[in-house]
Design a protein around this nucleic acid. Structure first.
Lengths: 160, 160
DNA sequence: CAACTTAGACAACCTCGTTTACTATTTGGT
DNA sequence: ACCAAATAGTAAACGAGGTTGTCTAAGTTG
């Protein structure tokens, strides 16, 4: 199902579309490869949420803060991750109100594989474009992207 | 509400995050400016849908094809655009089953303003990075992004 | 003319987000 | 030591955006 954005993309739209396309390409290929490696039900949102949870674990409220969404939204995300077996909830020892969300071995596996695949994809770009070009792209974007930019909403791509 | 993706972003994640960040930055600034110019209720998805509709108008089914989504999803998007006053539906003369979706003057205005703002944002990047760097970024991405990439799902960012 | 195929619409459901409201704790100030 | 305020988690109701499946009406084609 190839569906280019039809009639000639107006000039101003090219840069945003290319940035999105580059991101989208990497994410799509990541998930193709993850599916091949046994994580067929992983969605882009999951990897970023697991990343934000980290090895130490977090509460749902803190996760919401890290992802820049409400604690309720974070809670629902955790529900889905629990259902998929990527994380588990445990009572907090320090705070009777709180529950700590922790990665399961499966969640950690997803995270490790994602990192490895991203590294490989970047290497492909280096082979195709040369290390200089890739470095230039990264440096240019680093210069122009505010460092505190929220990274939520990152999962909203192509539900299969 | 600044919410960086917390603990140190693992190396492999940097490139995708930068691409997304670049895209996201442009889209956010576009909509800030659109809001200032009277299109406060415009969402990222709208601009891309209007773009795909084009001056000639399309049917909902064709719009779905162009955006790479089902005709039902396209139909719902059209519903929202109609409600916002950006498009209108008219019976097709050639086909009694079909309805043609056409831009209203308001929709056309949104499209024109978006193009102008995108141009201005690109100019800012040129001032900040130099024309060479921006051209390099564009060329690199053009080389690495498959040309038929779907551009759906583009609107799913930061609902205010 | 009969047999596809297509356009649109409707329903049910999923993901991801929001706001509002509530209870149970923890914390901080007097 | 106590009470007020902030916080954690949950739930409900909603909206945007997507999916399948099913249906009817209208084109198309052998």
């Amino acid at each position: 199902m190839t569906n280019p954005l039809v009639p000639p993309v107006p000039p101003g739209y090219e840069l945003p579309l290319l940035l999105f396309g580059g991101f989208r390409t990497l994410i799509d290929r990541l998930h193709e490869e993850l599916a091949r490696q046994g994580h067929a039900d992983a969605r882009p949102a999951h990897g970023f949420a697991l990343q934000a949870i980290g090895p130490a674990g977090v509460t749902a409220s803190e996760l919401g803060r890290r992802l820049g969404v409400s604690k309720q939204a974070a809670g629902k995300t955790v529900d889905r991750l629990v259902r998929l077996g990527y994380v588990e909830r445990a009572a907090s020892e320090a705070d009777a109100r709180a529950k700590v969300v922790r990665l399961t071995p499966l969640g950690l596996d997803l995270l490790n594989r994602s990192a490895a695949i991203f590294d490989e994809l970047r290497s492909e770009w280096v082979r195709a474009l040369g290390a200089d070009q890739v470095a230039t792209v990264e440096a240019a974007l680093r210069a122009v992207v505010p460092s505190g930019l929220r990274v939520d909403a990152v999962g909203w791509f192509a539900a299969e």
